[in-house]
């Protein structure tokens, strides 16, 4: 008659002691009932030890208690932190009228987006027609005025030579005549100065377009500047001031 194995069929059968009979041999002998009482006691203890090693590593009772204590401390700390946060946040939370505030906001939004008879202006049909008719017309007039301005501007840049068909290749005078100084007489802009009535209407006296302006200047090797002084009628008169380090005479 075979005895039931104390740990079942999965019990390891490897040698537990390098010397003496192996645990498997002892198992066979235990099954045949050949073990004495002392051998059987030793076999069972050994078998139990092997079973514990197989199923789980040996557990230290002290380490278990230590980890448990640590966990308890951590849990207590977390609980304390939770209570502190709640105590810190609870007053402000109680002071905030959250529900009331959101209710007021939503009420305001609903009131503002619902057009009613008090906040709707009915645009009369005549006014709407006038607006829709004159706004584009005014835009067209503005664009026409802009086109006119551009054309007039370019008009000022064109030359008479272009208009009368004189080419730009007109041969220049080879030797310019040298003017002779006149005797002392009328000052610049006195007797011989034409009156502004003689000037073209486009440059009437005192208009902002009067005066002289510098278009291009080459100072050469000298330092110079360009500015304007006011003339008799306030028109700007161009002045080119150029340094001269060399006195020829």
């Amino acid at each position: 008659m075979n005895k039931a194995h104390p740990t079942g069929p999965s019990h390891p059968t490897g040698p537990s002691h390098p010397t003496g009979p192996s645990h498997g041999e002892q198992l066979l002998r235990w099954n045949r009932g050949e073990l004495s009482a002392e051998e059987e006691q030793a076999f069972l203890e050994e078998d139990n030890r092997l079973q514990e090693q197989f199923d789980a590593p040996p557990v230290d009772a002290h380490s278990v208690e230590s980890s448990r204590a640590v966990s308890d401390d951590a849990l207590r700390n977390l609980n304390g932190l939770n209570e502190a946060l709640q105590q810190a946040l609870l007053p402000s939370e109680q002071e905030l009228p959250t529900e009331e505030l959101w209710a007021r906001i939503q009420t305001g939004i609903r009131q503002s987006v619902q057009p009613g008879p008090d906040n709707v202006v009915e645009l009369h049909s005549t006014r709407r027609k006038v607006i829709l008719r004159w706004v584009p017309a005014a835009s067209g007039l503005a664009m026409a005025a802009a086109a006119m301005f551009v054309l007039v501007h370019f008009d000022g840049e064109s030359t008479v030579e272009d208009s009368v068909g004189i080419s730009a290749s007109t041969p220049p005078v080879a030797t310019p005549p040298v003017a002779t100084p006149l005797v002392e007489g009328a000052a610049l802009g006195s007797a011989q100065e034409p009156t502004h009535e003689e000037a073209p209407a486009a440059v009437a006296a005192g208009s902002p377009q009067d005066g002289t302006t510098v278009e291009e200047v080459d100072f050469g090797h000298h330092a110079g500047t360009v500015f304007a002084v006011a003339g008799d009628h306030g028109q700007p008169l161009a002045v080119v001031w150029l340094s001269d380090e060399e006195e020829l005479l």
């Binding site: 610049l188 802009g189 100065e193 034409p194 502004h196 003689e198 000037a199 073209p200 440059v203 377009q209 009067d210 005066g211 002289t212 302006t213 510098v214 278009e215 291009e216 200047v217 080459d218 100072f219 050469g220 000298h222 110079g224 002084v229 003339g231 028109q235 008169l237 161009a238 002045v239 080119v240 001031w241 150029l242 340094s243 001269d244 380090e245 060399e246 006195e247 020829l248 005479l249």
Partner: peptide, 26 residues
């Protein structure tokens, strides 16, 4: 020579003068 003012181009209303100032003399 081009020893003083090589080029000056002015747009002038007829009768309105412009001035070139700066040459040393006496």
């Amino acid at each position: 020579k081009k020893d003083y003012l090589p080029l000056l181009q002015v747009v002038a209303t007829p009768g309105d003068p412009f001035f070139v100032v700066g040459q040393s003399h006496q």
